[in-house]
């Protein structure tokens, strides 16, 4: 799933809007739009964050962990876990960078899911 592994989103060639996750058509231009696959920037900043103390099934071993809404350099926002980011560095506005990590494990089937996370830099 390239969206999840390489942060591939969409761009509308008509109005230049960018989207993540991918969209099949541009909601602004509708049939006048032209959507193509488009790489998202790998840097951004924390728009909001929370420390999750009570994680869902599959995340027991990672709890507590930080979740954030990251605003990428192109203005697109996405939900992501933060890793390798000491508590004092996690603040609104802090610069973050894309990393590729294990997301969760299914204890029953032993399956491990991978995808994007972000870490605070600088």
């Amino acid at each position: 799933m390239p969206e999840r592994y390489r942060l591939v989103g969409s761009k509308c060639l008509t109005c230049h809007s960018e989207f993540f996750p991918q969209r099949k058509f541009c909601p602004h231009c509708r049939r006048k739009g032209k959507i193509v696959k488009h790489d998202m920037p790998t840097e951004g900043k924390i728009f909001s964050f929370t420390e999750v103390s009570s994680g869902p099934e599959g995340f027991e071993h990672q709890t507590p962990y930080f979740m954030a809404i990251v605003e990428l350099k192109n203005g697109v926002r996405l939900m992501s876990q933060l890793v390798d980011s000491p508590k004092g560095t996690v603040k609104i506005g802090a610069p973050v960078q894309l990393v590729f990590r294990r997301i969760a494990e299914d204890e029953h089937e032993g399956a491990i899911a991978y995808g994007y996370k972000f870490k605070v830099v600088g």
């Binding site: 996750p21 999750v52 009570s54 994680g55 869902p56 995340f59 990672q62 962990y65 979740m67 996405l78 939900m79 992501s80 876990q81 997301i103 969760a104 899911a113 995808g115």
Partner: peptide
């Protein structure tokens, strides 16, 4: 795009 990533 939320739950899978760990957002409760």
């Amino acid at each position: 795009w939320e739950l899978f990533l760990g957002a409760t």
